[in-house]
Design a protein around this nucleic acid. Structure first.
Lengths: 345, 345
DNA sequence: TGCGTTTCGGCAAACGTTATCAATGGCGGG
DNA sequence: CCCGCCATTGATAACGTTTGCCGAAACGCA
């Protein structure tokens, strides 16, 4: 049995296609009796509007493309979850593309999504520089919101956590709990998260410990780098390691424990993002929690606004949301009981 | 500048819409000179076919719906990654729906995806029983492949890991390394993964330790349950805890360490799935690695086959792939050096 | 009763593509 | 030299929806 169409419903309810369409879409008032008949017929036939036809006619697919660099990066699943929920709540569906950290693949996916006539795009760019052209071209065609990482200035609306504020929280916490010899295990990419956290650390560390700047080691956002980086700063005898994200922190923690260092007794460790693993490490890792649900809400709101306006009206917006410090055992006060301040499922 | 259409390309190349369509789709031979002109014009105008129109006309959207219970479950991101890559390689796009473990939401999403005219569905059912109706109804309309968890017999094609084989690998390994008092920390749901692993453990444990069956504690697939479950089987003085998945194993490991037990010295711990966290726990958790890429490949192949055939031809297939045992420190031989057999990024 | 105004319903034209059918021209076989 | 066939190409009808426009009926008011 083929799908029921407006035609079928019209025939069954004894009125015209146009009327059926109006009843179901509610675009224009329709007589109560007719409306009832139409609704009954639609129900009886199990009518489901054909979104392809609707898209063709109304030039809107009700679909948003979500392009991300690596779904296996443990920070993204939570973000994807919130984004899909927020978009579905708006009646939109999500086309997912994972570009495997490859800007070329990313460009291809963006192209494909555009050809599929997505109403808008949410992009977490794979590379600050090399993603730029494709993203800019796409932004010229549909509303586009950059998330998490930037992509050069003036490209599109963007939503991200306030990395500087987060880093300040960490440094403040460490200073308040008596840590004095802080080192930074960061990432050296041009990605905005890497750059901003790096800069914020530099700024904050100067204040914290003006005379003796903590050592800084830069690599990438991985557990392996976290392990390796510990050795690079070891000679500085740090009493705290500030890591640019939780993966680095996990690696650092492992290496510290291998070396027989006591965490947090000898050295505190902090991360960034609050991925699930941060809560589950032993000791739990103090970190900066990104307001994932709020980030998603802001992003979808931004999209809705652009979609509501006819042209790409209004100035570009760069939204930064304040993160929250989550204190766990890895930065407990020396001699303290080390109980988790909070724990996450 | 609006998107170029076939009309525009036709006008620019001085031939008819039909010819342009034929050149670009390659459906029928076309003169070499005309073809060249058409291709040049298309290139010059930046023509991209409108997939909505194509879908309307050809009754195929080139789109596959992927419905999963919880993207934040750390086992799924890797699967999603492989699935999207495999499908994109086939020229299909992926509509993602995360139903948050709620069968009602799942049914709604499936409905929405069908109304969006997905060519096929990939579903990881949220609940063995309560997902059944919606899945069966969907399977009657489009090719549908169940993944990871079953959904009652005879509903649709399915692809999953061979849970029994995996559990047998674990039990064999534990037996070979001298573990004698094994306990099972499992999940009691009707989900096939839970049921099959439970059954396989029961079968294997009977052989392993006929006289004194290991204790069994059943809860859900969570870290919290893993922590709690340890206390329930503690009195049995186990020298090995077989966990139904890695999350349980992580929780168990934490609780064991809290209790001061030496892992693997006093008690071995094993998991299932090989999520990233299993490799990163300290000690690394011995587990059963699901062949994620192969699962994805089989699933997409199954879909392609169904999509190629006109009706839903051919018998239903239930594919089970053999998993691989990954031995890490958590089950090292007592007195052994405890080095990881392998480690994962 | 006549007329402006509202309300409701239908007709038909798009949207951009694919697929069917007919028309054109060239060419070889009879 | 004519007929018919193949190779190309063009015109055109769908696909299922939304929507502008128009007619008809109903209603309010003087």
């Amino acid at each position: 049995m083929a799908d029921a169409t407006l035609r079928d419903v019209a025939r069954a309810s004894g009125c015209s296609i146009a009327t059926v369409s109006r009843v179901l879409a509610g675009t224009r008032p329709v007589g109560p009796e007719t409306a009832r008949r139409v609704r009954e017929a639609a129900e009886a036939l199990g009518y489901r509007p054909n979104q392809a036809a609707r898209a063709l006619r109304s030039r809107s697919t009700g679909t948003v493309g979500l392009v991300l660099p690596q779904i296996t990066n443990p920070f993204y699943p939570a973000l994807v979850r919130e984004l899909t929920h927020a978009l579905h709540a708006d009646g939109r569906a999500v086309l997912l593309a994972d570009c495997d950290d490859d800007p070329a693949a990313e460009a291809e996916y963006i192209d494909d999504l555009l050809s599929r006539r997505v109403d808008a795009l949410l992009v977490i760019p794979a590379d600050e520089r090399r993603s730029r052209d494709a993203v800019a071209a796409a932004a010229a065609r549909v509303p586009l919101v950059l998330m998490d990482r930037g992509c050069g200035p003036g490209i599109a609306d963007s939503v991200a956590v306030d990395n500087a504020a987060g880093m300040a929280l960490v440094l403040g916490h460490l200073a308040a709990t008596g840590r004095r010899r802080v080192c930074y295990l960061g990432a050296d990419g041009t990605a905005s998260a890497a750059a901003e956290r790096r800069a914020a650390y530099a700024a904050g560390a100067a204040v914290l410990d003006a005379g003796a700047p903590g050592r800084v080691a830069l690599g990438d956002f991985s557990v392996e780098w976290g392990r390796a980086a510990v050795d690079l700063v070891w000679d500085a005898r740090p009493d705290a390691l500030v890591c640019a994200n939780d993966l680095i922190a996990v690696g650092a923690l492992q290496r510290l424990q291998q070396r027989g260092a006591d965490v947090p007794g000898d050295v505190a460790v902090t991360g960034f993002d609050d991925i699930p693993m941060a809560a589950l490490a032993a000791p739990g890792i103090t970190t900066v929690r990104q307001p994932v649900a709020e980030l998603a809400a802001e992003a979808t709101q931004l999209l809705s606004r652009r979609l509501a306006a006819p042209g790409s009206e209004g100035p570009q917006r760069a939204i930064r949301l304040a993160p929250e410090l989550v204190v766990r055992e890895s930065s407990a006060v020396r001699g303290g009981d080390g109980a988790a301040a909070r724990s996450t499922g």
